[in-house]
Amino acid sequence: MNPLSHVAIIMDGNGRWGLKNKNSRNAGHKAGLITVENIIKHSIQRKIKFLTLYVFSTENWKRPKSEIEYLFALLEHFLKKKIGEFDKNKIKLVVIGKKKFSNKLNKLLSESEKITKNNSKIQINLALNYGSRSEIIEAFNKLYKKKIKINERSVSNSLYTKNIPDPDLLIRTGNTKRLSNFLLWQLSYSEIFFSKKLWPEFNEKDYDNIIYEFRRIKRNFGKI
Rank of each mutant, 00 (worst) to 15 (best):
residue 195 S to D: 09
residue 215 R to S: 15
residue 194 F to T: 03
residue 78 F to V: 07
residue 204 E to L: 11
residue 74 L to H: 06
residue 7 V to N: 02
residue 187 L to M: 04
residue 207 Y to S: 04
residue 159 L to I: 02
residue 72 F to H: 01
residue 205 K to G: 06
residue 107 K to D: 15
residue 13 G to R: 06
residue 27 A to W: 06
residue 51 L to C: 08
residue 83 I to D: 04
residue 193 F to I: 05
residue 221 F to V: 08
residue 171 I to T: 07
residue 57 S to D: 05
residue 105 L to H: 05
residue 210 I to L: 03
residue 9 I to W: 00
residue 217 I to G: 06
residue 187 L to K: 01
residue 203 N to G: 11
residue 4 L to T: 07
residue 126 L to H: 00
residue 45 Q to A: 14
residue 112 S to R: 03
residue 111 E to Y: 12
residue 216 R to F: 08
residue 122 I to L: 01
residue 180 S to H: 02
residue 122 I to K: 02
residue 86 F to D: 05
residue 146 K to S: 15
residue 2 N to C: 10
residue 81 K to W: 03
residue 68 I to S: 01
residue 14 N to D: 05
residue 82 K to C: 06
residue 56 F to W: 03
residue 7 V to R: 01
residue 99 K to Q: 12
residue 81 K to D: 14
residue 158 S to Q: 05
residue 180 S to I: 01
residue 147 K to I: 10
residue 122 I to D: 01
residue 59 E to I: 05
residue 154 S to F: 04
residue 69 E to V: 03
residue 136 I to W: 04
residue 156 S to Q: 14
residue 166 D to T: 10
residue 183 L to S: 03
residue 186 Q to R: 11
residue 97 G to T: 08
residue 96 I to K: 09
residue 211 I to S: 04
residue 21 N to P: 06
residue 55 V to K: 10
residue 109 L to C: 01
residue 5 S to M: 12
